[in-house]
Amino acid sequence: MELGQIFAVLGTAASNTGAGLSMGQIYAILGAATAVMLAGLGSVFGVAIAGQSAAGVVTEDPDKFGQVLLLQALPGTQGIYGMLIGFIIMNKLNIFGGMIDVSTETGLLLFVSALPIAIVGLISAIYQGKTSAAAIGIIAKRPEELGKAITFPVVVETYAVLALLASFLMVNGIPV
C-alpha cells in the first residue's frame, strides 16, 4: 500500500516534468531495475567471499589459479541472470526505441515477474559464495578433486536457475 503510494507520487512527479511516463511503465522499469540490482548485489557479495579464499590459496600456491578462479566465478552467474530478466523486460517495453505504453496491471505483473530472480538471486549468490569458499578449501588440499569440489556450489546454483526460469516464463507470458 505504502509502496503503491510512493510509486503514484513518482508517477505524477514524472508526468509533471513532462516525461509522460505511465504507472505501468514505472512498475515495469522498476522490475527490470530490481532484477539487475538485487541479483547483481548478490553476485558482488558471493564472488567477493569466494575471491578472498581464492586469493589465500593463490598466495601460497599460484599454480592453483585456474581452478580457484573457476570456483570464484560461480556466484557471478546470478548477476547475469538478473541482467537477462532486466533486459527482457526492457526489450518488452521497447525502451531503446520510443517506449510503448503498458497498463498499470501489466507493469505490476512485469515487476512481480522479476522478483524471483531478484530475491533468490541475491540470497543464493551469497550462500553460493560461501560454499565456493569452502570448496576452494578442498582445492587447496586436493587439487585433483576439482570435479567434486565444484559440485557443492553448483547445487546452490540449481535454485538460482529455477528462479531464473520462473521469472523468464512469467515475463515471457505477459502480453504487452
Binding site: A50, Q52, S53, G56, V57, T59, E60, A133, I136, G137
Partner: peptide, 10 residues
C-alpha cells in the same frame, strides 16, 4: 576466508 585458505594450503 583469506586466512583460512592460506592455512589450507600450508
Amino acid at each position: 576466508e583469506y586466512g583460512v585458505a592460506r592455512v589450507r594450503v600450508l
